[in-house]
Design a protein around this nucleic acid. Structure first.
Lengths: 139, 139
DNA sequence: CCGCATTGCGTGTATATACATTTATTATAC
DNA sequence: GTATAATAAATGTATATACACGCAATGCGG
């Protein structure tokens, strides 16, 4: 029964659940979940990309991205604008979205410090690097 | 904008998504998802525990566990039996559940090999250890 | 042009997840 | 012993996730 301890899905999913809870709690004054915060970051980092590109970068199904966007759109934090290719939708952050994002940043930072502090920044840096390798092997 | 690369939630959630997809695909002949497979493992490992204990061990909200169980129960893979304390529910795997679990094991193994093979077993062992430290710091 | 493959995106359905609240049972204070 | 606190679990609601499928726009071979 070594499965329980070594299973990649089990270990990653459990860590993901707990870390998500920590970040969601920290971000709760803004009403943002960490998923939504990450989406805002990715829009800011790659303003011109369409949904397919974003989804691939996030390692997230296209339809998941689509539905997560709806939540942000409903709150008026982002808006969808059709691209030149009229099949495409592009995402644009609204002023309200940008403002909320800036309010969220220090909260994010505190959560990150708390979570990463548990093992130390150097170990986290190494861990994150391994995670990226793992992800690269699956994409 | 170092957030994008270092954010613990982002990195873990993305890795979790991709790894989950890999395991779910591998397990698809059984109709089990890796979440469900993990639940079966945990029931087999700790037969007497109630939901609170299981949820804590899994780093999962009680209500999430409750609802994930429903899916297994609906398929007749587990059954709920009331404990001595009539507030408690105990989980018991049915023969059908045990049989399906055994069918799933080799599929799980192949997925694990594929995922872990991307970075090597030793690196995975180290990574899993760090993940457990991280989790321990949050519980 | 026109027909068809491709591409980008949305919907239907199902599971996964958690917080707030509620219900039922047990334990405890008095 | 009863009133109240504490505990175990389920429900209501909302987001997160992905697969199968369908629709609209584009590109391309003839």
């Amino acid at each position: 029964m070594t499965m329980a301890r070594t299973c990649a899905a089990y270990n990653l999913r459990r860590a993901s659940r707990l870390v998500t809870q920590a970040f969601d709690q920290a971000l709760s004054p803004t009403g943002l979940k960490v998923t939504q915060f990450s989406l805002l970051v990715s829009f800011l980092l790659s303003p011109g990309s369409n949904m397919v590109q974003l989804a691939h970068w996030l390692g997230m199904d296209r339809t998941t991205l689509s539905r997560n966007l709806k939540v942000l759109e409903k709150r008026g934090l982002v808006e969808m604008v059709p691209g030149e290719d009229r099949r495409e939708q592009q995402v644009r952050i609204t002023p309200a979205g940008r403002k909320l994002f800036e309010q969220a940043c220090p909260l994010w930072f505190r959560a990150q410090e708390r979570v990463v502090g548990g093992i130390g920044h150097e170990k986290w840096a190494a861990l994150a690097k391994e995670l990226r390798s793992l992800v690269a092997g699956l994409k």
